[in-house]
Write a protein that binds this DNA or RNA. Structure first.
Lengths: 219, 219
DNA sequence: TAGATTGTTAATCGATTAACAATC
DNA sequence: TAGATTGTTAATCGATTAACAATC
């Protein structure tokens, strides 16, 4: 019985790992059994020391002058991220965005298995979207009992977000991947990761506007 | 003729503005003509000084003891983000993700007008997705000439990302909203904002795994 | 006036980058 | 051996938080 060390890893480092992982798999396919931070850094225009620190959070050990074994590095990253095991998920809200997530095959490679989708629209219930069956939202609580669902993916309209989250909590999910702009009221021990497309667009459009002002000066 | 001051605004601040904006519009609808940082901070569990600093980047001035005029604040944020003008965009790749973006009505409120979508699939060409016409990708360059397209939204498969980006550059877009995991090779003056869903999932799943290790200790 | 709030300067905290020892 | 690379400690940089003056 030990206490998990409280040290937490930098979020920016965690976010960069999938980028490296993609590149490493490419390199493995090409038969490169060794890889150095210098090579990775060059590929992405970063400093090698940043890559090294990022990789270090996975616990991997490289060898001076040699680098890392590509295979070991891939395993270390996947293990750190929890991508080498099957994570069962429910998706709630089978609209456009929900369908897009169901259709993105890359997530399966990350261990994400969306075993069922739920919606209130009778048009969708009973059908399958990208091979995933869509059930009545009313059945979610019942179906989720003891089903080992770790993650709930929220792609419902804002107005339905909290209600859907409540049921996910009852089912006992460990995490919620929240695509709605609603701040959910959920128990602290449940991990919540928010995808904020508006935040991304804000960064883009605010930079554009500056360009526009600038060019106006010369028109 | 002045030089745009080189001072750039903190990206985290820019990313939080849409969250405030949403709340402010809600407050306006309720008839609240004044709002303070304290109120906003309470709503989102932040410190009021952080909200104040975030709002300050828009150039807004509040009044001590009073706060800000809700209307003025909304205008200031929208103006800073460039959301109070019409931004014309092309969307390339009318698959699941592209359709989801076309179907998200919230973006129109941010000034984003996707005037055309493009795809190589004959099944999609000639049809409309969420009221947006889909054209042959081959026609994009021609249609984009002098059309005042500011943004290109990339929702194509990875293999097609660079080719699509090249044409966007030729059309003269100022910004690319890149939903592919590909690092694009484009001129430096073009703003590129990347949406990395894998990065978001990495943060979520890495935290789950830690929970799993922890609970294993006690099973 | 007293108290709440804004605006600003200083302190803290965390991530990035620099410097350098260890090593194969 | 010499040189490239890892791993680590120190310095820097930027964002957050604290402290406090200004003000209505």
């Amino acid at each position: 019985m030990f206490t998990q060390s409280a040290k937490s890893f930098p979020i920016p480092s965690i976010q960069r790992l999938p980028v490296y992982l993609r590149f490493l798999k490419e390199q493995r396919n090409r038969g490169n059994i060794l890889i150095s931070c210098t090579q990775i850094a060059e590929e992405f225009g970063q400093l090698s020391v940043q890559v090294r620190k990022d990789l270090a959070i996975t616990g991997i050990a490289g060898r001076p002058k040699i680098g890392y074994r590509t295979n070991e590095l891939i395993d270390a990253i996947e293990n750190f991220l929890g991508w080498n095991r099957k994570i069962k998920a429910f998706l709630i809200g089978a609209g456009s965005l929900g369908s897009a997530i169901l259709g993105y095959e890359g997530f399966v490679e990350h261990g994400l298995h969306i075993v069922a989708a739920f919606d209130v629209d009778p048009e969708k219930i009973g059908r399958a979207i990208h091979q995933c069956p869509v059930f009545d939202f009313q059945k979610m609580l019942e179906m989720g009992q003891n089903a080992g669902i770790e993650i709930g993916i929220l792609t419902v309209p804002s107005a339905a977000a909290q209600e859907a989250a409540n049921i996910l909590v009852q089912i006992g999910v460990q995490g919620i991947w929240n695509y709605t702009p609603i701040r959910l009221d959920i128990p602290q021990e449940i991990v919540c990761e928010e995808v904020k497309l508006s935040a991304s667009f804000a960064v883009l459009s605010s930079r554009l506007k500056k360009n526009a002002i600038f060019s106006d000066e010369y028109v």
